[in-house]
Simulated scan of single mutants.
Amino acid sequence: MDKIIVFETFYNPIEANIVKARLMDAGIQCFLSDENTITINPLYTQALGGVKLHLFERDADLARNILGETTAALEVHEEDGQGETCPNCGSPHVGYVQATKKRFNIVTTVVSLLLLVYPFHARKVHHCFDCLYEY
Rank of each mutant, 00 (worst) to 15 (best):
M1E: 05
M1I: 10
M1N: 06
M1S: 02
K3T: 07
I4N: 07
V6G: 00
V6F: 06
V6I: 13
F7N: 03
E8V: 07
E8K: 14
N12P: 01
P13D: 05
E15P: 00
A16K: 05
A16V: 00
I18H: 05
I18Y: 00
K20E: 01
R22D: 00
L23I: 00
M24N: 06
G27H: 04
G27Q: 06
F31S: 11
S33L: 07
D34R: 07
D34N: 11
I38S: 01
I40T: 09
I40H: 03
Y44R: 07
T45Q: 10
T45Y: 12
Q46N: 13
L48M: 08
L48F: 14
G49V: 13
G50W: 07
K52I: 05
K52D: 04
K52G: 05
K52L: 08
L53R: 08
H54A: 00
L55T: 05
E57N: 10
D59S: 13
D59P: 08
A60E: 09
D61N: 14
E69N: 10
E69W: 13
E69R: 11
T70F: 15
T71L: 02
A73S: 11
E75M: 09
E75V: 08
E79P: 04
D80N: 09
Q82F: 07
E84N: 10
T85E: 06
N88K: 12
G90Q: 09
P92L: 07
P92C: 10
H93N: 12
V94I: 15
V94W: 15
G95N: 09
V97G: 02
Q98Y: 10
K102R: 07
R103G: 14
R103K: 15
N105W: 11
N105T: 03
I106F: 14
V107D: 11
V110H: 10
S112L: 00
L113Y: 12
L114S: 01
L115F: 11
F120H: 09
H121T: 14
K124N: 02
H127Y: 11
C128W: 02
C128I: 03
D130N: 12
D130E: 12
D130Q: 11
C131H: 04
Y133N: 08
